[in-house]
């Protein structure tokens, strides 16, 4: 996958492309969920694009990220293909996880994406573990653990950061403070104004930055990456951001009003970055419109691909439990392979 950073014009345009892709993907995912085409539930990343893309712009292609339940943006920021992501949301065989993960568990370990995660606070331990492998094998990589503001209250997050800090592991913890843990405001969940102040407990750097500004995110994570690679251990980067949509689609949002949403939208991360690139003469309005139209067409194509993709075969339900399938599962798998049904006897 192509490397990109904010140092070159091509990199900046690629970052803009990824941000626009995230928004188009998630708007489409929201619509398709509302239409009943996408099963389960979806958590959309709209409004937070600068955090995921800014972070990944500061990473090398083979660095790891461990994501959250709101993971679509991280996937696209890391370079995953919306076509196979959409197929996964549709539960299709061609999805990244053969349809077995869905929105909350999209992963592509080979691309360094260690999975969206349905458990709040599960990303940091995963990142600490990846950083442990990197450190143990002396590889030139780092691991980023994304977490929301709500996850900062989780015990496993503390344990993961403590281990990474104590062992100087090459990890970076990016707190996406979107100001609500599900429906509860951040100030009702924590006794700190800046969640990055938790870093003091581990004697590591912690900084709170504007998460609506992709440049600020990329700079902070880049510095944290350098520090991690130098063997100086992890950094906590708190990016202040905002989700425009509910916690999940269908959330009636009794906990906030439209005026608050509009205040944040005035600082929209895509519009502000677009305008900056236009001001610098790196992009014209027409070129942006063209880019947006191209991306929307790509997302439409991804939806069509997902709609037409085959459903997984019945036996797929039994595959991938283990590297070596035990007889307890094999009898169900083999029955499903031959006639698509389940074996007799106990169930």
């Amino acid at each position: 996958m192509a490397d990109f950073d904010l140092e070159s014009q091509d990199g900046r345009l690629e970052a803009l492309r990824r941000m626009v892709t995230i928004r188009a993907f998630d708007e489409e995912a929201g619509d398709r969920f509302a239409d009943g085409e996408i099963p389960g539930f979806v958590h959309l990343y709209i409004g937070e694009e600068a955090v995921g893309v800014g972070t990944c712009a500061a990473l090398k292609p083979d660095d790891y990220i461990a994501s959250t339940h709101r993971g679509h943006g991280h996937c696209i920021a890391k370079g995953l293909d919306p076509k196979y992501m959409m197929a996964e949301l549709y539960g299709k065989a061609d999805g990244y996880c053969n349809g077995k993960g869905g929105s909350m568990h999209i992963a592509d370990v080979d691309a360094g994406m260690l999975g969206a995660n349905g458990i709040v606070g599960a990303g940091p331990p995963m990142a600490t573990g990846a950083a442990l492998s990197i450190d143990y094998q002396d590889r030139d990589q780092i691991a980023v653990g994304f977490l929301g503001d709500g996850a900062v209250a989780q015990g496993q997050v503390h344990e993961a950061i403590n281990i990474a800090a104590t062992w100087d592991l090459p990890a970076v913890f990016v707190i996406e403070n979107n100001h609500y843990g599900e429906g509860t405001p951040v100030e009702n969940q924590h006794n700190l104004d800046n969640l990055s102040d938790t870093a003091q407990a581990y004697d590591i750097p912690g900084l709170t930055i504007d998460g609506m500004d992709i440049t600020a995110v990329a700079e902070a994570v880049s510095e944290a990456r350098d520090r991690a690679r130098a063997g100086d251990g992890p950094t906590i980067v708190e990016a202040e951001t905002y989700r425009y949509r509910g916690h999940y689609e269908g959330d009636e949002e009794p906990y906030r009003d439209d005026a608050e949403i509009e205040r944040w939208q005035e600082r929209d991360p895509i519009e502000s970055f677009r305008d900056r690139l236009i001001d610098r003469g790196e992009l014209t309005v027409e070129e942006f419109d063209e880019l947006q139209a191209d991306i929307e067409a790509d997302i439409d194509a991804a939806v069509e691909y997902a709609q037409d993709a085959p459903a997984p075969d019945a036996h797929e339900a039994y595959e991938d439990m283990f590297a070596e399938m035990p007889p307890e599962i094999e009898r169900f798998a083999s029955a499903a392979r031959t006639d698509g049904g389940r074996p007799g006897g106990d169930r």
């Binding site: 790891y64 461990a66 370990v109 260690l114 599960a122 940091p124 331990p125 995963m126 990142a127 600490t128 573990g129 990846a130 950083a131 442990l132 492998s133 990197i134 143990y136 094998q137 691991a143 015990g155 496993q156 344990e159 993961a160 403590n162 281990i163 104590t166």
Partner: peptide, 21 residues
């Protein structure tokens, strides 16, 4: 030797196992 941190080191071992060790 880990901190007394069962969730932390079990999680770290899980992440490490998924990434090549």
């Amino acid at each position: 030797d880990t901190p007394i941190s069962e969730a932390g080191f079990m999680g770290a071992a899980t992440g490490a196992a998924a990434t090549g060790t």
